[in-house]
Design a protein around this nucleic acid. Sequence first.
DNA 1: GTTCCGCATGAATCGATAG
DNA 2: ACTATCGATTCATGCGGAA
Lengths: 289, 289
Amino acid sequence: MEIITDLHIGDAKQVLKDIPSDSVDLIFTSPPYADQRKSTYGGIHPDEYVNWFLPITGQLLRVLKPTGTFVLNIKEKVVNGERSTYVMELILEMRKQGWLWTEEFIWHKKNSYPGKWPNRFRDSWERLLQFNKEKQFNMYQEAVMVPMGEWAKSRLKKLSDTDKLRDESKVGSGFGKNISNWTKREKAYPTNVLHLATECGNKNHSAAFPESLPAWFIKLFTKEYDVVLDPFMGSGTTNIVAQRMKRNSIGIDIVPEYYEAVKSQLNEVQLYLLEPKTEYAEAKLNGRK
Amino acid sequence: MEIITDLHIGDAKQVLKDIPSDSVDLIFTSPPYADQRKSTYGGIHPDEYVNWFLPITGQLLRVLKPTGTFVLNIKEKVVNGERSTYVMELILEMRKQGWLWTEEFIWHKKNSYPGKWPNRFRDSWERLLQFNKEKQFNMYQEAVMVPMGEWAKSRLKKLSDTDKLRDESKVGSGFGKNISNWTKREKAYPTNVLHLATECGNKNHSAAFPESLPAWFIKLFTKEYDVVLDPFMGSGTTNIVAQRMKRNSIGIDIVPEYYEAVKSQLNEVQLYLLEPKTEYAEAKLNGRK
DNA sequence: GTTCCGCATGAATCGATAG
DNA sequence: ACTATCGATTCATGCGGAA
């Protein structure tokens, strides 16, 4: 089956109107922060931010499948020595719009931007707000499990009688599930704190977030051939990662240069995929070592 | 000079009225969370939480020095599959009251409560909201730079292996590149993310937060002989740490048993301080190894 | 005196059951 | 319908006893 990556140039609010209702499995985006990126987006004043964003979230609510998820990467900036409140106001307004605010993940940026101020430390975290349409949504937790802590090694060496008993009782009618339970014990479910480094020495275009960030949420909230949407595509990280992971995706950006840049990157990948020697393509798909 | 630790039994809203205006350098507290700790505090319904807390923050605003800081440890609970919004509403209301919302620190709890749910991962972070009266406030950044290497070192060292493993696994299946190096991190300036584990060991009285949490903020926002206030004393961690660090402190709690327990602990420490052999006292002061 | 291993214990959350 | 209670689930940590 072919993966379609559908890119659009234009204002998100307008372009979204052409997307059918209940058609998207995951929306992952990092919108222009208030008063940031003046050169590219014209800058939105913090006071106007909520009013500017709400019509877009209204459209996003429409295009998302009932089982889908909206992950919003955002952080309030400091204005006049104080943290702005527009993110909190946005959450409250989106709930009135019909969104459920399911969870707030924290992205802990290990190598945050350097600097020193007299009354403030470096800001090394961002919000990843999870919104849903319904209480029941698709979540593939197994896809993002992580190795357990050190202590697990000793435990696995010699598994106690209680563990054996527990596993057997769990199995019940199942057969051969013992082994899966065993191997599962080596991995644990993650928490709502993500611990990733920002990609610094990257290519020409600097992405707002590292590829592992959308990759994590794509794994968690979609399966292959699902549809991923990023209404503020930027350098296209979400779409490029989605394509590599065999997810269809839609990208929207108002800046034509971004469109071209992303498109060329996508073509590049697709070319590799068509090559008979797929060694490099495989590497790309699986992540470079 | 003698350190005074002034403990009160009673409702915070009432007791605070007896404290003079502009007299406290740091307020560090962890109020009972909504619908939590019913047995001891009766539990406050999420819908009533803001109205319950606002009169208290009003008093806190009065007693705090213009150069002082209020650090509030709080986290919203899940209600009906959604995160509650009372913390956000509280911030908005406190700003109307006159508070400046200067910063939000994240406390990353390594050992969060276990459990598995179909729609949610374990919650492993809490908010540490920093409020101020004025834009200019006292902040002793150097004080936390030294201890950062001290107390965080042992813990981070211990955790590093696991974290490395986890990060690599994330990266391997994802597309990230940069693996953090912890040696650099030890020398780095602190950020607004704190990386501590909860103390779950049985030490007669279980505290809501580890001692290193108030210790960090006491170092950051006060100097010796300053006044620290905790209007929800609980097991008295804030006051005990304050006394060890040679800060005067005020503690308020409505539960008489807590008053007695904290008082006995304080005497204990003072005894050790008076002993000629100060080895144990020193260990206490510097935090156990 | 080290090191290792077993064990209890958390500011949790969901779904089912009961009034 | 709406609220209160209960059992099941799960994992990092530090303490104490043992090798």
